[in-house]
């Protein structure tokens, strides 16, 4: 860990600080690194070290309950866990589920939030009441969201079945969390519900900050509401969109709490995601080596998703 910051120091000496004030002495070139170092140290300890450790473990057959026999690294067996994963149908299924889940929740959350923000931007009364209503899901921890939706969709005592019964729309109780694809949809609904407030607030702020004159001019020119939205609002709120999506991507693994509580990845792996499968292998099955190999896949997935959005964000910053 100390080597990391030392290396940074070297770089600083070579590079200097481009935008630093003209009279800055050579001592001050250290300044940004002094500011960043504490953050880097904490992150190195809490994130980077465990990830490196996981990478190492993923090349061993480490089993939690018999560490002395299994925490052994051998070159000929180092790829065993990855080979096992490659041949594991459940792993591929969980990967597919995860990708579908991310694609659907991110897109739908965004579209709903966009629509909601456009609607709220036009509201003339009760703004603060509505904003408070909107923010209600933010106060629910993902764990609570999970419990709450698991309860709503429960087949025997759930509110959804209960309401449908009372309204006479249903005769047989439906096991929402068991059936396909309703189990997945229920989890997605819960996650989308949880995501919307933050996205909406950011997009709303973006919409409200747009210059009204542009819209007036467009209206006078005879542009329809849709045209105004498409050609003025959308391009102008693009940076806000990217911020919103980045915030979302950073928190995407929160969905784990929801899935774990609503279905635990079951039944029959129907809602298995890469996070639940890893957890199942690591803790329930004590197969820490195999689980580490899989968590590497989860790390790569998360990193790529975030990297992609950040590139976009940095690009859009250059434009502005």
């Amino acid at each position: 860990m100390t080597t990391t910051s030392a290396k940074q120091g070297e770089k600083a000496n070579q590079a200097g600080v481009v935008s630093a004030p003209r009279h800055s002495s050579s001592r001050t070139t250290w300044f940004p690194f002094i500011l960043i170092a504490p953050s880097l140290i904490v992150i190195a300890l809490v994130v980077i070290y465990p990830v490196l450790y996981s990478i190492y473990v993923s090349f061993t057959p480490f089993h939690l309950l018999r560490p002395e026999q299994t925490f052994v690294f051998t070159t000929e067996k180092m790829w065993n866990n990855y080979i096992k994963l490659w041949n594991d149908d459940v792993f591929w299924k969980s990967l597919r589920n995860t990708v579908i889940f991310l694609a659907v929740t991110v897109n739908v959350s965004y579209l709903v939030a966009l629509a909601l923000s456009q609607l709220l931007a036009r509201v003339s009364r009760g703004q603060s009441v509505m904003r408070t209503l909107l923010m209600v899901p933010m106060m629910f921890a993902p764990v609570l969201v999970g419990f709450q939706f698991a309860w709503f969709f429960n087949a025997t005592v759930g509110l959804v079945n209960n309401a449908l019964f009372s309204l006479g729309l249903m005769q047989e109780p439906k096991a929402w969390l068991v059936d396909q694809p309703t189990g997945m949809i229920a989890i997605m609904l819960a996650t989308i519900w949880m995501n919307i407030p933050m996205l909406t607030i950011i997009l709303l702020a973006g919409t409200l900050s747009l210059p009204q004159e542009t819209f007036e001019a467009a209206r006078v020119d005879g542009a329809s509401a849709w045209q105004r939205f498409k050609h003025i609002t959308m391009p102008l709120i693009k940076p806000f969109t990217l911020i919103a999506l980045t915030v979302l991507s950073l928190d995407i693994a929160r969905a784990y709490d929801v899935v774990r509580i609503m279905t635990g990845g079951g039944p029959a792996h129907r809602t298995e995601m890469i996070w639940t499968y890893t957890g199942r292998l690591a803790i329930r099955n004590s197969q820490f080596g195999l689980a580490s190999a899989m968590s590497m896949v989860a790390v790569v997935l998360g990193v790529f998703f975030t990297l992609y959005l950040f590139r976009q964000l940095i690009k859009s910053r250059v434009v502005y």
Binding site: K11, A12, A15, P32, F33, L250, T278, F305
Partner: peptide, 25 residues
């Protein structure tokens, strides 16, 4: 400074590591 973007990304990406990968280690 040199490595500006790299260090920035490193810090950001550390947030993208899911909890399951961190928990046991």
């Amino acid at each position: 400074f040199r490595g500006h973007t790299l260090v920035f990304l490193l810090i950001m990406l550390s947030r993208a590591v899911p909890g399951v990968a961190l928990g046991l280690p």
